[in-house]
Design a protein around this nucleic acid. Sequence first.
DNA 1: ACATAAAGTTAGTTGACGCTAACAATCATT
DNA 2: AATGATTGTTAGCGTCAACTAACTTTATGT
Lengths: 153, 153
Amino acid sequence: MTQHDPAPQMSASTGDDRSPDMRVEAFQGVRAARSRELAEDYVELIAELIHTQGEARPVDIAARMGVTAPTVAKTLDRLARDGLITRAKYRSIFLTEQGRALAHECRHRHEIVLRFLLSLGLDPETAERDAEGIEHHVSERTLALLAAFSAQN
Amino acid sequence: MTQHDPAPQMSASTGDDRSPDMRVEAFQGVRAARSRELAEDYVELIAELIHTQGEARPVDIAARMGVTAPTVAKTLDRLARDGLITRAKYRSIFLTEQGRALAHECRHRHEIVLRFLLSLGLDPETAERDAEGIEHHVSERTLALLAAFSAQN
DNA sequence: ACATAAAGTTAGTTGACGCTAACAATCATT
DNA sequence: AATGATTGTTAGCGTCAACTAACTTTATGT
């Protein structure tokens, strides 16, 4: 290499002796998750609106997501492009099969994470906020463990 | 399907929302967290490189983050603009006071989350990957509960 | 029924964060 | 001191996700 020699890796400071490759993968996974997050949130919200209001309209999505209507419109275009929803001008939004499946999966994850946080003793508001952020980053394996924990409490 | 009822969406900024869409808050929080994520990851990595290699260089950051050198350069510019690092052309990177504080806080969170996942019984690889994603979305309150859980196991 | 309000769309901007290609500086070795 | 490899930078592009402003369509109320 160049000037700074390979620096003996044996410090093993606090036992986090993770290999670099492991972390590269972790970061790539996080980036992938981040690109899915918005879609998941939208699809989940849309499913809920259809269930509770009978239909999903951009206004309601905008209100609940806390963004403006044009932002919603563009995001919906992407979701349609990606085959998660169908939409027609000036009409309400429908989930495709694929969208419905994703919504179901997300709701499932969200509920397990939320239940776990509540069973840890967290207040509902914080639990909701944290769950919203955490749910997209929890693997199947972790999810199973969280569910198991909640079940025991 | 004329109506989806008259949206009780007025100000109501004075607490006591009966049908609280605290999800708006949650989503806004998630967006805020997302905008901090990258900075946190970089600062954490830089601190670690300084500790283990003696200095933090763009190449090493690029290798560990799994992105290209120009991407790193632009991100570092943003970090410098935001007062987290200082840098000079063709030389290695230093953390500011603020950067060091953030790095420390991030490392702390990361370790608590990781330890928690491991103490749940998760394999190290998955634990690392999930921790990397989760750590940015865990509130102080939740962090305390996770730490307490790990301590009891 | 027709004016107005609400909802939706289009156009254009901004900033973050990826990329490639091409160029510049540094270093390591001869 | 010259050279070639490594490292760093600059320029330019694309996508995503937010915004405002201005316009069109749909719904509502008297």
